[in-house]
């Protein structure tokens, strides 16, 4: 094989190259997570990990499985479309263990005003009041029941 005479240095170099490639491939196989590339250039398992995070808001469907009485009051009122946790806050813990986790009492003076305080920036059709002029400091629930806020006959005026 006169062609490869004096070519020993090339084979040694090629051998080194192959060895380096094998080492690279071994390290890569060890370092790159198994699920990398499952869906794209990222770790596929990350999707499942993010999906497994815990929930804080139980969702109105969960509330309605027990609180059907409130649902009956709400359904014909102006607040029918307002989800429970919009006012009551995140209550997944309560839904998990209704006996030991009690939802905090709400302050209508803060909650009602949050949505219904007058400002020129709100959509024109949205019911707005200036708290001082409207109620002269009376708590909102004196006249309005938050679950169905229309004035009831006989309510204090």
């Amino acid at each position: 094989m006169s062609v490869f005479k004096d070519a020993g240095h090339l084979f040694r170099f090629a051998g080194l190259f192959v060895l380096a490639f094998i080492v690279f491939w071994a390290i890569r196989g060890y370092v790159v997570p198994k699920s990398f590339g499952q869906y794209g250039h990222y770790r596929g398992n990350a999707i499942g990990e993010i999906a497994a995070r815990s929930v804080h808001f139980a969702g109105h469907d969960t509330c309605e499985t027990c609180h059907t009485d409130v649902l009956d009051v709400k359904k014909n009122g102006k607040h029918a479309h307002v989800n429970c946790e919009a006012c009551h806050g995140a209550l997944a813990k309560h839904a998990d263990d209704p006996a030991s986790v009690t939802p905090p009492k709400l302050d209508t003076a803060v909650l009602c005003v949050r949505c219904h305080a007058t400002t020129a920036a709100k959509p024109k059709g949205f019911p707005q009041v200036s708290a001082e002029e409207h109620s002269t400091g009376l708590p909102c629930e004196t006249c309005h029941q938050p679950h169905s806020p229309a004035m009831v006959a006989g309510g204090a005026k």
Partner: peptide, 20 residues
Amino acid sequence: CYHRITKGLTTACCEACPTG
């Protein structure tokens, strides 16, 4: 809220939005 929408819930912001 990927952890919610994959469980059949809506996002926390949509759940809490009072006007839809």
